[in-house]
């Protein structure tokens, strides 16, 4: 189907589909009106029941922790899937590769980027750790902090060179990090069972709300998810970077 025909078919279909969406959305309650009482109830229960000030964290790592376990394993599986997809391609490296533009200029990393990158690493790491450890007090948490932590490692790459082999073996460390985080969060759920209560029931002392050590298992949930997200994202990034470096080395 040519592009023009495809566009015309789409416009006809989109007109109908768009009308359906708008019709469906107009059936929703007005913007800003309370729909059900669940949200407000949970928000107001977070401080008295769980001693955490961030209601979203209380939901993600306590009330809805079972769903978060599934969500975490989506990320885990996807990282494994990306690694599998891109690694299967590595066998093809042996074949002679024809570079489409052998005379292209690959720009060198400028000194300015290096200097600022090195300066940024510490700040980014600190910010990531802050977001992870204060997830139950202020906006943020394991998912957000994990992304910032992964970004800190990416800055290392930006400022320097990606180390793909050698004694350090970052890929093995990333896999270990990801697996530790995922297993740690599952272990938090099992802790509830071991204590003779429900899966993911908050079994640790709750402490005083507003303190760093409060909320029972919620900060631990943030920490384990933070490690898992960091490991998974680094694994995904490093697989893609390896593909890019493969091209760069050839040229």
């Amino acid at each position: 189907m040519s592009l023009a025909v495809r566009r015309r078919v789409f416009l006809v279909a989109a007109a109908g589909f768009g009308a359906l969406i708008v019709w469906g959305l107009t059936g929703l309650p007005d913007f800003g009106v309370e729909i059900g009482h669940l949200g407000t109830r949970i928000a107001h229960a977070a401080v008295p029941e769980r001693h955490v000030t961030a209601a979203v964290s209380a939901i993600n790592f306590d009330y809805r922790a079972f769903d978060t376990l599934g969500e975490e394993f989506i990320l885990f599986t996807a990282a494994a899937g990306v690694a599998l997809l891109l690694r299967s391609g590595r066998g093809e490296r042996e074949r002679p590769h024809i570079d489409a533009s052998p005379d292209r200029q690959v720009p060198e990393t400028s000194d300015l980027v290096r200097v600022f990158g090195v300066g940024l690493i510490g700040f980014t790491l600190l910010l990531g750790l802050y977001v992870v450890f204060h997830g139950h007090l202020t906006p943020g948490g394991g998912f957000q902090g994990g992304v910032v932590l992964a970004a800190a490692v990416l800055v290392v790459y930006l400022a320097g060179e990606w180390v793909s082999a050698g004694r350090l073996r970052p890929v093995a460390a990333m896999e270990a990090l990801e697996a530790t985080g995922a297993a740690g969060f599952a272990a938090l759920g099992l802790a509830g069972l071991v204590a003779g209560r429900a899966f993911f029931q908050n079994v640790l002392p709750l402490g005083r709300s507003g303190q760093l050590l409060s909320g029972g298992t919620i900060p631990l949930g943030n920490l384990t998810v933070g490690l898992e997200v960091m490991g998974a994202l680094l694994l995904v990034f490093s697989e893609f970077l390896e593909q890019a470096l493969l091209l760069r080395r050839r040229s």
Partner: peptide
């Protein structure tokens, strides 16, 4: 829905 400096019964958006 962050109850650091607001009353635990303030109206908040749905967390």
């Amino acid at each position: 829905p962050i109850f650091v400096d607001i009353s635990p019964h303030s109206p908040v958006v749905d967390p």
